[in-house]
Design a protein around this nucleic acid. Sequence first.
RNA 1: GGCGACAUCGCCAAGUGGUAAGGCAAAGGUCUGCAAAAUCUUUAUCCCCGGUUCGAAUCCGGGUGUCGCCUCCA
Length: 458
Amino acid sequence: MKIYNTLINKKEEFVPVENGKVKMYVCGPTVYNYFHIGNARPLIFFDVVKNFFEYIGNEVTLVRNVTDIDDKLINRSLEEKIPVSEIAEKYTKAFFADCKALEINPADHHPRATEYIGEMIELIKQLEEKKYAYEVNGDVYFSVSKVEKYGKLSGKKLEDLQAGARVEANKQKKHPADFTLWKRAKPNEPKWTSPWGDGRPGWHTECVVMSRKLLGGTFDIHGGGIDLIFPHHENEIAQAEATNNKKLANYWMHNGYLNIEGEKMSKSLNNFFTARDILKKYNAEAIRFFFLSKHYRSPIDFNENIIKESSQAVKNFYNTIKNADYLTIRNNELEYSEIHLKHKNNFTTAMNDDFNTAKAISVLFDITKAYNKTKDPAFIHLLIELGNVLGFFLDLDVKLSNDLSDISSELIELFINYRNRLKKEKNWEMADAIRNDLKKMGIVLKDTPEGTDWSIEK
RNA sequence: GGCGACAUCGCCAAGUGGUAAGGCAAAGGUCUGCAAAAUCUUUAUCCCCGGUUCGAAUCCGGGUGUCGCCUCCA
C-alpha cells in the first residue's frame, strides 16, 4: 500500500507503527455553523480510508475532533445572541446529523476541545519550561524561532514567512510567525483558569493533546484539508516534537480544495453551500460519487451539472442492483471464481495506490457490466461488497424497498392494473397519461416481459 | 515578493517511458405499442515550442493559461 505523504512530498510504502493496526487522526469541524459542501470532502474521503484499511484486515482507530471553543464560536455567539456553549451544542448536533445524512460512519472517538483544557494547560506549561513558550500580558505564544526545522511540513522558511506581504501587526510577538497557545479572555468571553490568568487555549494545541491522549506518542496517519498544512499542522508538529522529541505522525495526508464553478467558495461571492442544502436536492451517494470520482489530492470543481451526472451514474448502479433483485439473492451462498477475484484484485490494486478511488469506481462499472452480460449473481455480491468499501449501497433494505404504507402500494397496484387493461385495449394515450402522472409524483413504472415494476425515485 | 499544484474527447476523469481506462451526454442498431432498463456500435494522440529516448500524455528546458498557500479556513 502506497500513500502520498505531505511530509516528504511523494508516495511511500505504508508501514503502520503496530502491525495490523492503523491509528489515524483527522481534523474535524469547528462547530460555529452548518458545515459546507467543501467540508464534506475530508469527511467522506477519510471515511473511505478507514473502510479500506479495515477491508484489507486492519484494526483501525479513527479520531475526529470537535473544536467547540474558538474565536469563530465567540463571534457567532454575539451574532445569534446565545451563549457560546449553546452555539457549540447546536452545531455539534447538526454536524452529527449531517454526517449521518451523508452516510458517513462515525469515528471511533469524537473528542471535544473543551473536555481537554486541563491537558492543554499542562502541555503549554511544558513548553514554557522548555523555553518554547513565552507569556505576554496573559497571552502565551509559541516561539517558532526555537524550532530548528520549523516549516518542514509546508516547505516554508521562516525568512520567507517574514518577507510575506501580509504580516500580522502584533507587537507582543517576538517573531511574526509565533502562534497563540493561550489567549487571555476578554470580559464576557468563556474562560478557564490557568497559570497565566483566565483565558482559553489556542486552536493548534488541542489536536496535539487529543491525538496524544487517544492515539499515543507517534501515530500513523494525520489527515485534513490541504489548507491546514500551514499553519495548523505545522504548528501541531512544532508543539508535539518540542515536548516529547517524537514524531507526531508518520504519514500526513491532505485532500484538495473544492471550488464552486471555478471559484473559491465564499460567502461574499454568494456561492456558499452547506451540506444540508445540497442534500435537499441530491442524495448522499451522488455527493459521494462526485467526490470519489476524482483523486482526493486534486482540486475539485462543484457545479450543478456535475452533481447531476454523478446522480445519474449512481442511479445506473441501482438499476442493475434492482434488476438483480438483490434482496432475494443476498443470502445465497456464492463463491467467487477467478473472474470475480480478478475484478476484486483490480479494485484493491487501485485503492492500494494512494487511494485511487476514481479507478476503483471504474472497477465497479466493470463488474456491473459483467453482471448485465452474464446475470451471474456473484457479480452483484461483489459489487455490493466493494461498493460498501467506498461507502455506497449501504442500508439496501431501506433503499430497495418501496417505502410506502400498504394502502398506498395497493393504490399504485390498482393504477397499474387499470393501465394494463388500457394497454390491452391499445388505449396508449390513457396508458401513457397514467404513467406520466405517476412519474410526476415520483413513482416510476417500467414495463418488463414479466409485468410492470414500479419504484419511488427522488 | 516567497512557495506549490494543475492543463487528457462536449462535460467529469484514470493513466507517471511502450503506443490513450471508465462515467455522463450524444448518435445509430437490437428489444419494446411507446417509454424505461439492458445490450451492441460510433466519438481524442493528451495546452504550445524545443530536447532526451528505439519509443513520451508520461522525463528535462522554455512558454501560455488556471488555481492554491503564505491570515481564520476542509
